[in-house]
Nucleic acid binder design. Structure first.
Lengths: 203, 203, 203, 203
DNA sequence: GATGAATGAGAATTCATTCAT
DNA sequence: GATGAATGAATTCTCATTCAT
């Protein structure tokens, strides 16, 4: 691997060249099914239906592919939350929507996301990293409407994410249960200083 | 890499064989200084002061070394939580101690921790990941002394763990800050229904 | 060594790709000159004038190269026997030609043949070993023109093959002698009920 | 592997030291179950229930173990045939006994014998090789009582052996059938110039 | 005499990258 | 523009052999 020029050449300046999408989609699938160890350029080229040579036409090296994937995941994440940026935080339904969004985002391609993010962490410009979570964190306000400190926002988002991730990783059978979702909402609301939502009677 | 037998052979059943410790310590150092890319068996053997052959006497393959490191990290969580077991959960100092113990585990070697956690998540089986939490979860009680439901206990333990892990994985600069520690304690106490610890004035 | 896909990939379906021939020829030479012990992939690649990587493009692992050599040897038997197929079995000259063809196959490289045969026996599956004999066996008739029973045909073909193989495996110095050839022909003709060819005066 | 002193040291000059037997028996088993590839000193020591060090007390190196095994197989083979040395060859029952002896000898440990013999061929003194088959071959006489030439004897023994071996290797279902045995006897008797035994009516 | 932990040269295999077609 | 065969440095892993206890 030599230097890097991010996405190299960019034919007709249209970054949206279909090939790039195909490659990144294949990369996500491959990462998901084979893990980082099985993620090699030959396998990727095959899954993407292009030749290795073509891979190198669009990306300067393998890391760049991972990085692009990571950036793309971040972007998707940020976009999903963009709508709720200035939202009314006291609104329970909205909080629940946030949890659901998280659960959904986390639902598929766990390994792909992890590897992509890890690649980003390992090789990309650190400053770029906050980009994805930033908007979400900045929009969080407590029960009094005061914005959370960056660290508090970090704790909240990662705590919720961590509980969900653990449920996935540990193969918990309650992953899609109502109670699990409720407890996640509780956790978030209590941390933000809202009154504790009442617990439902056990099913 | 073939299958695996975790720690292979275990000479004279004295698992505490110094060599294993030496290797794992060297692994952590190497990971820290050279990153995952520079983490190869020859370099590791050299840094550990043993031959490659010896590496393979104690570990079936390279992944197993990372996994052992990961298990260590995992043990740190479990140990931290275990301290809570007999504890009076209302005791703020104790909760804080638990968090603090964890945060300073692994000697501050963030990169090593990161790689170790990644290895653990990538290769451990789900059942193993949950191991060690059971007793902790069963002993958790809320502010009124009522035991938490299994799902609530799961959410609490994994949420705290998730936030800590994310700080490690994302190489957060506030990992060892007072505020981060405070926020983690807040999260746990609020979820259990205790009064929110006051936030200190920002430094 | 993992599983195997026999000849892997087969670029542009033109199996006749010169490289495979070059590699197998180099393998036979190397086996002949260095024995099975000196038969390693680096040496083979060098002698073949290709890179190790290229070796692995055409063969999934080292064993597969030996196996391919073995299959070649096996094909020589089958081809030799196939010549009998339409043939008038009473024709002494033809029988002799078949034996002779086999005996001189593989360019007289006894050590290479030996290793190849060993590889074949060690790794081929039983069904493959029988392949190619069926038609030969069905066409065998005794001196009266009556077809041989399947078992009798089996005994004849494998007996002749066995004697030839043993001469190869045991590095017999008479492998290419006239007397050996004569005795093989005798064996076959007597079993089929033909008059015994006269023995020549010893040289 | 350095030089070689065959069986090294020989404690109390009694070659029959039980350990040697144990090791050779384990070697035969291991060869049988794992093939030549899986035949390594560590595995052998374990199966034999001794330490590697002990292996090296009795054998100068790995090859010597294989060679000893080969020599032992040869000896057993020779011993089995010793009784029939001067026999009345016209006796059909005796011929049949020879075939049975072969079939029995070949019955078990195919791979072990093959590997052992191969090792002998590859590493031992070529002159030593004929030792096992020699006595048998020398005792063969044709229908007129004249001894067979060495090559004729070789062809006969290896042809019969080859047909049996092929039946084993190709997983033939008639391996233990009467007809198969009959045909082998036919093959041998016809080659020796006896009248062809009548074929039985098919079952 | 026996043990088995340690050694380390050597071998197999992988895979990012290039470049002639 | 695309292809995919070829490259070969780098890495993982094996296993015969030694030797301190």
């Amino acid at each position: 691997m030599k230097a890097a020029e991010k996405t190299r050449k960019i034919p007709t300046q249209r970054r949206s060249h279909a090939t790039i999408e195909v490659v990144l989609e294949a990369a996500a699938q491959l990462l998901e099914s084979a893990g980082e160890a099985g993620f090699n350029t030959n396998a990727l080229a095959e899954r993407a239906g292009v030749s290795v040579g073509t891979l190198y036409r669009y990306f300067p090296n393998k890391q760049a592919i991972l990085a692009a994937l990571g950036r793309r995941e971040h972007d998707a994440y940020a976009a999903a939350h963009a709508a709720m940026r200035a939202g009314e935080t006291g609104d329970l339904a909205l909080d629940r929507a946030v949890i659901r969004t998280f659960l959904h985002a986390f639902g598929g391609r766990t390994k792909a996301r992890r590897a992509a993010v890890a690649a980003l962490l390992a090789h990309a410009d650190p400053a770029e990293l906050s980009a994805g979570y930033g908007p979400v964190e900045m929009s969080l306000v407590d029960a009094d409407g005061a914005p959370l400190s960056p660290i508090a926002a970090f704790v909240l988002t990662r705590a919720v994410q961590g509980a969900m991730r653990a449920a996935v990783m540990e193969d918990a059978d309650f992953l899609h249960s109502q109670e699990f979702e409720d407890e996640l909402v509780r956790l978030g609301r209590l941390y933000l200083g809202h009154a504790a939502p009442k617990r439902r009677a056990p099913t």
